[in-house]
């Protein structure tokens, strides 16, 4: 790596390789830049804008922006963090995010990022949108109340599973997640629990049924350390089971089935 392949991030020198984006280079160097729609396994989408940084004085999404030699990047500043907090607050009020009774609580990247950004209230008026659940699939539940339109499931289904089960529909404030079936029900798609798309949701939309609160408080992804200190989380990735904690129970049997 030549000396010239570095940039500074909040004053720290960060090396990078050709092709890496700012956030990829930062992660490789162990520096956290808040993000939601970015997942290193997928092509960047640049939509949530949480990873916005100032590169040479100009705001840009660090998940799509490639660094240049000697570039001066600012991320952890009062100004940018205020904007990130406002973005998070808008995400919270646009959907129905009731962390107290959400089974993704403690494993949720939206919640963990909000804690990281010290978001103490939603600030804006709640939209309280009327959104449905799709419980048609025998193994998976979709709770659209919590969708932040990150499109990770869309990308995973399309790019990894080769299925196109999920898509974003509508425009602007009417954008919403849909599934690929005439009935609009997950059960009528070719979705499977083995799909990559079943395991990438950073919030509580795509949920394996009957898991619920099986992971005790204290062993969820962000119980012991904040998201900034956690290697990139992949949905729920609890600390490994201990002898006094539950493992997933077998499904209840269905009479005659």
């Amino acid at each position: 790596m030549s000396q010239s392949n570095t940039f500074t991030l909040d004053g720290k020198t960060i090396p990078y390789n050709e092709g890496q984006t700012i956030i990829q280079a930062a992660m490789a160097a162990g520096v956290y830049i808040p993000h939601l729609c970015f997942n290193p396994e997928f092509k960047p989408h640049g939509s949530c804008k949480l990873c916005t940084v100032k590169a040479n004085g100009r705001q840009t999404a660090s998940c799509t922006q490639h660094p240049a030699p000697g570039m001066v990047v600012e991320s952890d500043t009062i100004e940018i963090n205020d904007e990130r907090r406002a973005l998070l607050q808008m995400l919270f009020v646009e959907g129905n995010h009731f962390c107290p009774s959400c089974e993704k609580s403690g494993n949720c990247q939206l919640q963990a990022t909000a804690y990281e950004m010290k978001m103490m209230s939603p600030h804006f008026d709640q939209f309280f949108p009327d959104r449905m659940l799709d419980a048609s699939h025998p193994e998976y539940l979709l709770d659209f109340n919590r969708c932040i339109l990150c499109s990770l499931c869309v990308r995973a289904s399309r790019d990894v599973d080769g299925k196109n089960v999920f898509a974003l529909s509508g425009r602007g404030i009417k954008s919403h997640l849909i599934v690929n079936a005439k009935s609009g029900r997950l059960a009528d798609t070719d979705f499977s629990g083995d799909d990559k798309a079943a395991h990438v949701c950073p919030v509580g939309v795509i949920l394996k049924k009957r898991v619920g609160f099986t992971i005790p408080i204290g062993q969820r992804s962000f119980d012991e350390q904040p998201i900034s200190a956690t290697p990139h989380p992949q949905g729920a990735c609890p600390v490994g089971p201990r002898s006094n904690t539950a493992t997933l129970p077998p499904h209840p049997t269905v009479k005659g089935g």
Binding site: P100, G212, F213, T214, I215, P216, I217, G218, R242, N244, T245, A246, P249
Partner: peptide, 21 residues
């Protein structure tokens, strides 16, 4: 037993998610 002093998650349908260590 529940993980928190108020509003914990210890009890789940069919049992509990942890026992005492």
């Amino acid at each position: 037993t529940a993980g928190k002093r108020i509003h914990g998650t210890g009890s789940v349908p069919g049992g509990v998610n942890k026992s005492l260590s």
